[in-house]
Amino acid sequence: MDERDSLIAALSDPDRRTGIVMDFDGVLSPIIDDPSASALLPGAAVTLERLAARLDLVALLSGRPVAFLAERIPLPGVVLLGSYGLERHHDGSTVTGPGVQEWLPRVATARDLLTEALGAVPGIHIEAKSVAVAVHWRNALDREAAALLVDDAVARAAERTGLAPEPGKLVQELRPPLPVNKGTALRQLIAEQRLDLVAYAGDDRGDLPAFAAAREAGGASLVVHGHETAPEVAAVPGVHFENPGEFVVWLDELSRTPDPAL
Protein backbone atom coordinates (compact mmCIF):
# COMPACT_ATOMS: atom_id res chain seq x y z
CA MET A 1 0.00 0.00 0.00
CA ASP A 2 1.53 3.35 -1.03
CA GLU A 3 1.43 6.61 0.96
CA ARG A 4 -1.74 7.86 -0.70
CA ASP A 5 -3.67 4.64 -0.09
CA SER A 6 -2.38 4.43 3.48
CA LEU A 7 -3.62 7.94 4.19
CA ILE A 8 -7.04 7.18 2.70
CA ALA A 9 -7.27 4.15 5.01
CA ALA A 10 -6.22 6.19 8.03
CA LEU A 11 -8.68 9.03 7.32
CA SER A 12 -11.45 6.45 6.83
CA ASP A 13 -10.85 4.79 10.21
CA PRO A 14 -14.22 4.84 12.05
CA ASP A 15 -12.45 4.60 15.42
CA ARG A 16 -10.71 7.96 14.99
CA ARG A 17 -11.95 11.50 14.55
CA THR A 18 -10.44 12.60 11.24
CA GLY A 19 -10.45 15.68 9.06
CA ILE A 20 -8.98 17.31 5.98
CA VAL A 21 -8.23 21.02 5.63
CA MET A 22 -7.31 22.58 2.30
CA ASP A 23 -6.17 25.76 0.65
CA PHE A 24 -8.22 26.93 -2.37
CA ASP A 25 -5.99 28.42 -5.08
CA GLY A 26 -3.44 25.96 -6.39
CA VAL A 27 -5.13 23.07 -4.57
CA LEU A 28 -8.81 22.86 -5.49
CA SER A 29 -8.50 25.44 -8.26
CA PRO A 30 -5.61 25.94 -10.70
CA ILE A 31 -3.62 29.17 -10.52
CA ILE A 32 -4.85 31.41 -13.34
CA ASP A 33 -4.02 34.87 -14.69
CA ASP A 34 -7.23 36.47 -13.38
CA PRO A 35 -7.56 35.68 -9.64
CA SER A 36 -11.19 36.83 -9.58
CA ALA A 37 -12.12 34.07 -12.05
CA SER A 38 -10.82 31.19 -9.89
CA ALA A 39 -13.29 28.35 -9.48
CA LEU A 40 -13.37 24.79 -8.18
CA LEU A 41 -12.21 22.14 -10.60
CA PRO A 42 -15.06 20.17 -12.20
CA GLY A 43 -16.49 17.60 -9.80
CA ALA A 44 -14.73 19.03 -6.74
CA ALA A 45 -17.93 20.41 -5.18
CA VAL A 46 -19.63 17.00 -5.27
CA THR A 47 -16.50 15.43 -3.81
CA LEU A 48 -16.39 17.96 -0.95
CA GLU A 49 -20.05 17.33 -0.20
CA ARG A 50 -19.44 13.58 0.03
CA LEU A 51 -16.41 14.12 2.24
CA ALA A 52 -18.35 16.40 4.60
CA ALA A 53 -20.79 13.55 5.16
CA ARG A 54 -17.95 11.08 5.84
CA LEU A 55 -15.24 12.87 7.81
CA ASP A 56 -15.51 14.70 11.12
CA LEU A 57 -14.11 17.88 9.57
CA VAL A 58 -13.80 19.21 6.02
CA ALA A 59 -12.52 22.79 5.91
CA LEU A 60 -11.10 25.40 3.57
CA LEU A 61 -8.33 27.59 4.99
CA SER A 62 -7.30 30.22 2.44
CA GLY A 63 -5.70 33.61 2.03
CA ARG A 64 -8.81 34.60 0.11
CA PRO A 65 -11.56 36.57 1.88
CA VAL A 66 -14.11 34.25 3.42
CA ALA A 67 -16.88 35.86 1.32
CA PHE A 68 -15.02 34.71 -1.81
CA LEU A 69 -14.93 31.14 -0.48
CA ALA A 70 -18.61 31.21 0.50
CA GLU A 71 -19.56 32.22 -3.05
CA ARG A 72 -17.71 29.31 -4.60
CA ILE A 73 -18.30 26.67 -1.94
CA PRO A 74 -21.87 27.09 -0.65
CA LEU A 75 -21.84 23.58 0.81
CA PRO A 76 -23.35 22.64 4.17
CA GLY A 77 -20.88 20.97 6.46
CA VAL A 78 -17.75 22.56 4.93
CA VAL A 79 -16.06 24.98 7.35
CA LEU A 80 -14.68 28.13 5.68
CA LEU A 81 -11.83 30.23 7.04
CA GLY A 82 -10.45 33.14 5.03
CA SER A 83 -7.60 35.64 5.20
CA TYR A 84 -5.18 33.08 6.70
CA GLY A 85 -7.60 32.40 9.55
CA LEU A 86 -8.49 36.02 10.38
CA GLU A 87 -12.05 35.46 9.09
CA ARG A 88 -14.60 32.68 9.52
CA HIS A 89 -17.93 32.03 7.80
CA HIS A 90 -20.63 31.54 10.42
CA ASP A 91 -24.42 31.44 9.99
CA GLY A 92 -24.23 33.16 6.61
CA SER A 93 -22.03 36.05 7.75
CA THR A 94 -18.35 36.85 8.22
CA VAL A 95 -16.82 36.89 11.68
CA THR A 96 -13.37 38.45 12.14
CA GLY A 97 -10.91 37.55 14.84
CA PRO A 98 -9.89 39.76 17.78
CA GLY A 99 -7.97 42.91 16.85
CA VAL A 100 -8.70 42.79 13.11
CA GLN A 101 -11.09 45.74 12.90
CA GLU A 102 -8.65 48.28 14.34
CA TRP A 103 -6.22 47.55 11.48
CA LEU A 104 -8.69 48.14 8.67
CA PRO A 105 -7.94 51.91 8.31
CA ARG A 106 -4.26 51.04 7.83
CA VAL A 107 -5.20 48.43 5.25
CA ALA A 108 -7.07 51.17 3.37
CA THR A 109 -4.01 53.43 3.62
CA ALA A 110 -1.78 50.67 2.25
CA ARG A 111 -4.18 50.10 -0.64
CA ASP A 112 -4.02 53.81 -1.52
CA LEU A 113 -0.21 53.88 -1.28
CA LEU A 114 0.18 50.82 -3.48
CA THR A 115 -2.33 52.10 -6.01
CA GLU A 116 -0.48 55.40 -6.22
CA ALA A 117 2.88 53.66 -6.67
CA LEU A 118 1.87 50.77 -8.93
CA GLY A 119 -1.65 51.31 -10.26
CA ALA A 120 -0.48 52.63 -13.62
CA VAL A 121 2.13 49.90 -14.23
CA PRO A 122 0.95 47.50 -16.98
CA GLY A 123 0.45 43.94 -15.79
CA ILE A 124 0.34 44.81 -12.07
CA HIS A 125 -2.99 44.41 -10.30
CA ILE A 126 -3.89 45.75 -6.85
CA GLU A 127 -6.46 43.50 -5.16
CA ALA A 128 -8.43 45.04 -2.30
CA LYS A 129 -9.35 42.24 0.09
CA SER A 130 -11.65 42.38 3.09
CA VAL A 131 -8.86 42.63 5.69
CA ALA A 132 -5.76 42.89 3.50
CA VAL A 133 -4.43 44.21 0.19
CA ALA A 134 -2.52 42.17 -2.39
CA VAL A 135 -0.36 43.08 -5.38
CA HIS A 136 -0.22 40.62 -8.29
CA TRP A 137 2.29 40.80 -11.16
CA ARG A 138 1.51 37.54 -12.95
CA ASN A 139 0.42 39.43 -16.09
CA ALA A 140 3.49 41.71 -16.29
CA LEU A 141 5.54 41.32 -19.47
CA ASP A 142 8.78 41.54 -17.47
CA ARG A 143 8.04 39.69 -14.23
CA GLU A 144 11.51 40.23 -12.77
CA ALA A 145 11.32 44.00 -13.22
CA ALA A 146 7.76 44.05 -11.89
CA ALA A 147 8.81 42.03 -8.83
CA LEU A 148 11.44 44.64 -7.97
CA LEU A 149 8.88 47.44 -8.23
CA VAL A 150 6.42 45.51 -6.09
CA ASP A 151 9.02 44.60 -3.47
CA ASP A 152 9.98 48.26 -3.08
CA ALA A 153 6.40 49.57 -2.94
CA VAL A 154 5.25 46.88 -0.51
CA ALA A 155 8.24 47.46 1.79
CA ARG A 156 7.51 51.20 1.89
CA ALA A 157 3.79 50.63 2.53
CA ALA A 158 4.59 48.12 5.28
CA GLU A 159 6.94 50.58 6.98
CA ARG A 160 4.33 53.34 6.76
CA THR A 161 1.37 51.29 8.03
CA GLY A 162 2.88 48.59 10.23
CA LEU A 163 1.18 45.85 8.21
CA ALA A 164 2.91 42.50 7.72
CA PRO A 165 4.01 41.34 4.25
CA GLU A 166 3.01 37.85 3.10
CA PRO A 167 4.72 36.60 -0.09
CA GLY A 168 3.11 34.13 -2.49
CA LYS A 169 3.21 32.97 -6.11
CA LEU A 170 3.80 36.21 -8.06
CA VAL A 171 1.89 38.10 -5.37
CA GLN A 172 2.68 40.04 -2.23
CA GLU A 173 0.09 40.82 0.41
CA LEU A 174 -0.05 43.21 3.36
CA ARG A 175 -2.24 42.17 6.29
CA PRO A 176 -2.64 42.92 10.01
CA PRO A 177 0.43 41.82 12.02
CA LEU A 178 -1.60 39.66 14.39
CA PRO A 179 -0.39 36.32 15.81
CA VAL A 180 -2.61 34.43 13.38
CA ASN A 181 -1.56 32.32 10.42
CA LYS A 182 -2.63 29.07 8.80
CA GLY A 183 -0.75 27.13 11.46
CA THR A 184 -2.52 28.75 14.41
CA ALA A 185 -5.85 28.44 12.59
CA LEU A 186 -5.28 24.74 11.93
CA ARG A 187 -4.32 24.08 15.54
CA GLN A 188 -7.54 25.75 16.65
CA LEU A 189 -9.59 23.57 14.29
CA ILE A 190 -7.86 20.43 15.55
CA ALA A 191 -8.68 21.39 19.15
CA GLU A 192 -12.26 22.45 18.41
CA GLN A 193 -13.05 19.25 16.54
CA ARG A 194 -10.98 16.99 18.86
CA LEU A 195 -9.35 15.44 15.83
CA ASP A 196 -7.15 12.37 16.14
CA LEU A 197 -5.83 12.73 12.60
CA VAL A 198 -5.76 15.68 10.22
CA ALA A 199 -4.38 16.15 6.71
CA TYR A 200 -3.60 19.62 5.36
CA ALA A 201 -3.33 20.36 1.63
CA GLY A 202 -1.50 23.45 0.38
CA ASP A 203 0.77 24.74 -2.36
CA ASP A 204 2.50 27.97 -1.30
CA ARG A 205 4.70 29.62 1.34
CA GLY A 206 1.67 30.75 3.33
CA ASP A 207 0.85 27.05 3.86
CA LEU A 208 4.16 26.24 5.56
CA PRO A 209 2.88 26.95 9.13
CA ALA A 210 -0.13 24.68 8.48
CA PHE A 211 2.07 21.89 7.11
CA ALA A 212 4.14 22.13 10.29
CA ALA A 213 1.04 22.16 12.51
CA ALA A 214 -0.38 19.07 10.79
CA ARG A 215 2.87 17.15 11.26
CA GLU A 216 3.20 18.27 14.90
CA ALA A 217 -0.28 16.83 15.52
CA GLY A 218 0.74 13.51 13.99
CA GLY A 219 -1.08 14.26 10.76
CA ALA A 220 -0.09 14.56 7.12
CA SER A 221 1.03 17.30 4.73
CA LEU A 222 -0.45 17.12 1.23
CA VAL A 223 1.76 19.22 -1.05
CA VAL A 224 0.23 20.23 -4.38
CA HIS A 225 2.79 21.32 -6.98
CA GLY A 226 2.52 23.75 -9.86
CA HIS A 227 4.73 25.70 -12.27
CA GLU A 228 5.82 28.14 -9.55
CA THR A 229 6.27 25.91 -6.50
CA ALA A 230 8.77 27.48 -4.10
CA PRO A 231 11.75 25.26 -3.16
CA GLU A 232 10.86 25.33 0.53
CA VAL A 233 7.34 24.11 -0.30
CA ALA A 234 8.62 21.35 -2.59
CA ALA A 235 10.89 20.19 0.25
CA VAL A 236 8.03 19.70 2.75
CA PRO A 237 7.84 16.04 3.83
CA GLY A 238 4.48 14.46 3.04
CA VAL A 239 2.35 13.20 0.19
CA HIS A 240 3.02 15.13 -3.03
CA PHE A 241 0.75 15.74 -6.03
CA GLU A 242 1.85 17.05 -9.41
CA ASN A 243 -1.06 19.50 -9.82
CA PRO A 244 -4.54 20.34 -8.48
CA GLY A 245 -6.19 17.94 -10.93
CA GLU A 246 -4.23 15.00 -9.52
CA PHE A 247 -5.06 16.07 -5.97
CA VAL A 248 -8.80 16.33 -6.70
CA VAL A 249 -8.74 12.81 -8.22
CA TRP A 250 -7.19 11.51 -4.97
CA LEU A 251 -9.75 13.48 -2.95
CA ASP A 252 -12.51 11.80 -4.96
CA GLU A 253 -11.02 8.39 -4.15
CA LEU A 254 -11.06 9.31 -0.46
CA SER A 255 -14.71 10.40 -0.68
CA ARG A 256 -15.74 7.10 -2.34
CA THR A 257 -13.89 4.72 -0.01
CA PRO A 258 -16.40 2.34 1.59
CA ASP A 259 -17.08 3.06 5.25
CA PRO A 260 -15.45 0.19 7.23
CA ALA A 261 -18.22 0.53 9.84
CA LEU A 262 -20.91 -0.45 7.33
Score class of each variant (00 low, 15 high):
29 S>D: 08
233 V>Q: 06
112 D>C: 03
130 S>E: 14
228 E>W: 13
193 Q>M: 07
112 D>T: 14
182 K>H: 09
221 S>G: 09
88 R>I: 11
109 T>V: 15
76 P>N: 13
191 A>Y: 01
184 T>G: 04
48 L>D: 10
51 L>N: 08
182 K>P: 02
130 S>W: 00
132 A>D: 11
136 H>V: 06
30 P>W: 07
73 I>Y: 01
188 Q>L: 11
129 K>I: 08
157 A>S: 13
153 A>L: 07
113 L>I: 04
58 V>C: 03
9 A>G: 08
70 A>V: 11
207 D>C: 04
93 S>N: 12
185 A>D: 10
260 P>H: 11
126 I>P: 01
38 S>Y: 05
29 S>M: 07
108 A>R: 14
17 R>N: 06
181 N>T: 12
97 G>P: 00
151 D>V: 01
136 H>L: 05
157 A>N: 03
203 D>V: 12
246 E>R: 14
46 V>F: 02
38 S>M: 05
78 V>N: 06
45 A>N: 01
34 D>N: 14
27 V>G: 01
254 L>P: 01
4 R>Y: 02
14 P>S: 13
95 V>D: 06
149 L>I: 03
219 G>N: 09
252 D>K: 02
40 L>F: 02
179 P>A: 12
46 V>N: 09
228 E>G: 00
93 S>R: 15
41 L>R: 09
212 A>R: 13
2 D>K: 01
209 P>D: 14
35 P>W: 10
90 H>W: 13
222 L>F: 06
207 D>E: 12
155 A>P: 00
210 A>D: 13
257 T>L: 04
125 H>R: 14
155 A>T: 02
120 A>S: 15
153 A>N: 08
105 P>I: 13
253 E>Q: 15
43 G>A: 02
210 A>E: 12
176 P>S: 07
69 L>V: 09
187 R>P: 00
171 V>P: 01
123 G>D: 07
200 Y>S: 08
20 I>L: 15
215 R>I: 12
79 V>G: 00
3 E>S: 14
71 E>F: 02
234 A>Q: 11
191 A>H: 09
151 D>N: 13
118 L>C: 09
29 S>I: 03
68 F>K: 03
187 R>N: 15
37 A>N: 01
197 L>D: 11
47 T>V: 13
217 A>Y: 03
35 P>N: 10
203 D>H: 07
90 H>I: 13
24 F>A: 03
123 G>L: 06
184 T>D: 10
184 T>A: 10
41 L>W: 07
249 V>S: 10
